[in-house]
Amino acid sequence: MNDDAMRDEWYPVGLFSQLDRGGRETTLMGAPIKVALDANGAAKVTGEDGRVLPVSVRYGHIWSSLGEPRKPVFPIPEADQPGRRFVDVGVVRVRCSPLRAVENFLDIAHFPFVHTDILGSEPHTEVEDYKVEIREEEDEVWATQVKFYQPQAAKSASGGITTEYMYRVPAPTCSVLYKTCPPRPGEWDVIALFVQPLAEDLCDVWPWMALFDDETPLTDLIHFQQTIFLQDRSILENQIPRLLPLDPGMEIPTRADLTSVAYRRWLKRHNYTYGAQLVAQ
């Protein structure tokens, strides 16, 4: 019953650039699915019983759903902005709740300790006040005016800078972050985390980027993002409890966790509970 709200959402199920007629077999929320190209070169997703599932191709990835999505895949307007480079970072499997993968992406307090000398460093550990809201019209979680000192904020950064971030959660297992773009002040680099829920405690994570950076070779951009994400992976696999607790009795958040608090509240409001723990155990 509880999964119903999330069944009607879109999820990434593969990279379009790597898809062929043979296709790939994968899993979506416990159900085996097959993702392949059809005779006309269009993406096709089928369920176990041969049922044809909804398909959309956006941001380099194929999206599908077990239910009936009421809206198209959420918009990322920067994906249509000229001059950006789009980077398919590739899949990484993580033995954790899909919701935990998103929550970790929203957290900045761990930067100095997990991404040491890249996204943060001691003693610059303070998270300054920032703003968080649930935007009713778009139905998204937003965190703005997030600032953090970073030794190497991006592949294109040469030395420490104070980076500004904005985060948004437009879908239960997706997050998009906007951060200061070192070569082009005034614009934002876009880094997205698209999470495919395989089970409540297992997910495939598909990071994707839309950057202003004409100089750095593509492979270096991929390796930079994979380095960051693989530093997170070992932490994510050791979080307890494995499911994301939505019961406020379970943990004591601090001011730095405001985005996470809003994300959990938003999940609860929509009954997005696949991968969540509802009652503290």
Binding site: L15, Q18, D88, V89, G90, V91, P217, L218, T219, D220, I222, H223, Q226
Partner: peptide
């Protein structure tokens, strides 16, 4: 010399 092992299989 970085090699795009994943996802590019370089």
């Amino acid at each position: 010399r970085p090699v795009d092992f994943h996802p590019g299989a370089e």
